[in-house]
Design a protein around this nucleic acid. Structure first.
Lengths: 104, 104
DNA sequence: ATCATTAGTTTCCAATAGGAAAGTAGTTTC
DNA sequence: GAAACTACTTTCCTATTGGAAACTAATGAT
């Protein structure tokens, strides 16, 4: 699943799946810790893969709404399965202080 | 799922799940395109996360067998769900020539 | 002695990922 | 006219990822 690669796509997609249509700035606030550049890049990425749709609204300051597409919804079983796993095995935390992505 | 991050973990885990116990050199041959360094690193990573086990056998030239642990097996629903998705939506390839993560 | 096979490790390097901060541009409010 | 809000983009920089190739070390075969 290279289409879900990167640090943020799962979180963004999860947020959009439970929240429906969400504007850029609201995503920036809801996805904790993400920078504008990353959010923009990840959204473009997922839009290119047709997982989400982008709609520009002609409001006072323009706003842009993002939404999971029908195609993106087909990923829900996977996202759900992962969420389920997370809940079930979160307690079995086998990570240690010198975590695997770094050196000894 | 940072524990399944990287280019190879899914492939290695999938191979081990269907193949049972597999030796290093056999994995190197079965996981197409992987370099020894990467295989070694990813196996260590997954061993640290208790997804697989490593067993040294005292054969003529020593051999090392890798196997999915009981804990690693708990990821099977996720792997299966992803495989299912891949089969169902492989045809809907929305990736274009100037693709963001790979080449053509 | 040299080669092959086992399971790695080491080195060197290029490409990608990711973050902080500032900038752009249009509109509206004070 | 300055500040604020929208949605980004740009720049600069560091860290991580990943690959190719060579190397180590033990053992066995030719």
């Amino acid at each position: 699943m290279e289409i879900l690669s990167g640090k943020w796509k799962f979180h963004i997609l999860g947020t959009l799946m439970e929240g429906g249509k969400i504007r850029f700035m609201d995503l920036l606030r809801e996805v904790d810790g993400i920078a504008a550049k990353m959010l923009s890049k990840e959204l473009q990425d997922m839009e290119m893969n047709h997982l989400i749709s982008r709609t520009v609204l002609n409001t006072k300051p323009i706003t842009v709404e993002y939404e999971v597409t029908e195609y993106g919804r087909t990923l829900e079983p996977i996202i759900d399965e992962i969420a389920k796993w997370g809940e079930a095995y979160r307690n079995a935390m086998f990570k240690k202080q010198h975590d695997q992505t770094s050196e000894i």
